[in-house]
Simulated scan of single mutants.
Amino acid sequence: MHSARVATQAVLQAADAAEYHARLRRDIARQIGRATMLQRLGTSRLGRAVLVGGVALVPTALARAAAWTRVSEPALRRAGLA
């Protein structure tokens, strides 16, 4: 929803692709980076063991990891979604 709303706003404001990508990057780059790091960690046997072991030791870690990869509340507000 977020990227679609940002794209729609860019079209309505006659923004070019660079402006759209800059806004999208500003809104979600950190979350994508965190998700990518978790995904890469999970591709190795050791990484999966660390992830599963970490969640077993700290059950709230999974919810925290999910929250860290979601679009932030301020970005949702900027897009008119919150």
Score class of each variant (00 low, 15 high):
70 R>W: 05
70 R>K: 13
63 A>R: 13
53 G>E: 09
32 I>L: 14
80 G>W: 07
2 H>Q: 07
58 V>S: 13
16 D>A: 03
27 D>K: 00
39 Q>S: 14
46 L>C: 01
77 R>T: 11
34 R>S: 03
41 L>R: 06
8 T>K: 13
75 A>D: 09
58 V>H: 11
29 A>N: 07
53 G>V: 07
36 T>S: 11
18 A>T: 07
59 P>F: 08
8 T>Q: 15
41 L>C: 03
57 L>N: 02
5 R>F: 07
18 A>N: 08
40 R>D: 13
65 A>M: 14
26 R>C: 06
68 W>H: 13
79 A>D: 10
24 L>D: 10
62 L>F: 11
49 A>W: 01
38 L>G: 02
77 R>D: 14
10 A>D: 07
24 L>R: 11
53 G>C: 07
74 P>W: 06
12 L>P: 00
42 G>M: 05
5 R>L: 08
81 L>A: 12
22 A>V: 00
22 A>S: 12
18 A>H: 05
46 L>F: 04
61 A>Y: 06
78 R>I: 03
73 E>L: 10
63 A>C: 06
29 A>Q: 08
57 L>G: 14
76 L>C: 12
20 Y>R: 14
80 G>T: 12
74 P>D: 13
28 I>M: 12
57 L>F: 06
53 G>Q: 08
69 T>S: 15
17 A>P: 00
62 L>A: 15
33 G>Q: 07
67 A>K: 13
34 R>H: 14
36 T>Y: 02
62 L>S: 13
54 G>E: 09
17 A>C: 09
73 E>G: 06
72 S>A: 14
75 A>Y: 07
13 Q>A: 15
65 A>P: 04
59 P>M: 10
69 T>E: 09
43 T>I: 02
20 Y>Q: 05
15 A>T: 03
60 T>H: 09
44 S>I: 00
63 A>Y: 05
53 G>K: 05
72 S>H: 05
3 S>H: 12
52 V>Q: 15
42 G>P: 01
39 Q>C: 05
1 M>V: 12
23 R>P: 01
54 G>H: 02
54 G>K: 04
69 T>A: 15
54 G>I: 05
81 L>H: 11
78 R>S: 15
19 E>S: 13
34 R>D: 06
60 T>E: 15
28 I>S: 10
24 L>C: 01
9 Q>C: 02
20 Y>H: 12
8 T>P: 00
70 R>N: 11
64 R>W: 10
22 A>M: 03
32 I>P: 00
50 V>F: 07
36 T>K: 07
39 Q>H: 09
35 A>Q: 08
6 V>C: 05
61 A>F: 10
24 L>Q: 05
3 S>T: 12
72 S>V: 04
49 A>R: 09
72 S>G: 08
29 A>C: 01
2 H>D: 06
44 S>H: 00
21 H>S: 04
40 R>K: 12
19 E>Y: 01
31 Q>W: 01
57 L>D: 02
51 L>S: 08
13 Q>L: 14
63 A>F: 12
58 V>C: 11
8 T>Y: 13
10 A>V: 04
5 R>D: 06
56 A>G: 04
65 A>Y: 06
67 A>V: 05
34 R>E: 11
81 L>Y: 12
16 D>M: 02
53 G>T: 06
26 R>L: 09
1 M>P: 13
71 V>Y: 10
26 R>V: 03
7 A>D: 09
26 R>Y: 02
